[in-house]
Write a protein that binds this DNA or RNA. Sequence first.
DNA 1: TCGAGATCTCTCAATCATTGAGATATCCTC
DNA 2: GAGGATATCTCAATGATTGAGAGATCTCGA
Lengths: 158, 158
Amino acid sequence: MVAQRDGDREFGRLLQGLASEMNLLGHDFAAAQGLHATDVQALLAVLRATDPPGITPGGLRAELGLTSGAVTAVLDRLERAGHVHRTRDAADRRQVHVHYHPDAARLAFDWFTPVAHCTDRVRSEFRAEEVATVVRFLTRMTEELERLRQDRRERQPR
Amino acid sequence: MVAQRDGDREFGRLLQGLASEMNLLGHDFAAAQGLHATDVQALLAVLRATDPPGITPGGLRAELGLTSGAVTAVLDRLERAGHVHRTRDAADRRQVHVHYHPDAARLAFDWFTPVAHCTDRVRSEFRAEEVATVVRFLTRMTEELERLRQDRRERQPR
DNA sequence: TCGAGATCTCTCAATCATTGAGATATCCTC
DNA sequence: GAGGATATCTCAATGATTGAGAGATCTCGA
């Protein structure tokens, strides 16, 4: 009754549903903080970027799919609200690095703690090797989607 | 060196990264179709809703985290562009059902076919029981996040 | 060393998506 | 029926996003 095709379809739907649910969490956080959805996405991207130098506006542009003007506006808002601050790169003074303010990190951390508990709870339902499988899947899936986007961008540069 | 805490953190980051990547696919589709990111999210939600009666504006409101005014605007745009159409429920004439136009479905289907291939490719790297594990994980994760959001909404109704 | 081109960020005006309150129509229950 | 609840839409105000272009800095070849 449930053919391979249906399985695939269900699979995609599952992924979409999860992504959508995570988006909504962002919306809720935004509403709770008096921020806008885009600002939250940007803030999370900044928090996620632990590579020492932080993330640049250009990186955010790529990560959020916004134009440069929009990124500047987002960062202005976040900076005005005290969540992040900008520093110029000493080596390449064209570049700007965005850093989060520790308080912003704590705020986000506190708010997302219940979410982390959710993750833990689900995680604890799986055996270690199953978790490893899931991690492998998530990693591969992300890689493949990244590659797909990159390919498309190269094939259609404008 | 990598403690449990770090593992958790990495796990959340993985999920976020995947969700973000899927979001970007939406952005790309939007750009390709001359739509806006929100419109695409809405269109996908409509396509995803296969429960026979379709989805209502209220359902979209919940699914996209928008206000009623915004949903009306989104649907106006999608309807004007010929992607969806609205019908009134015969039994409850307050309600509206949103249906996609077959051409819109085909358009989205064609565009997302390479994405489906991505999913298939990754999927084929896993044994059947591993796929089952991943499906179980995705399902549980979505359920838990849904529940978390619901709990929060009930605790803080306004 | 200099200059052309590339890269990164920001500015600014125009556009248009979103909010939020309220209007309208319909349903449900007493 | 009347009152309250529910679902959607309207509309003015707000402000986020776009897109072109300016400014500053770097890179590399002549």
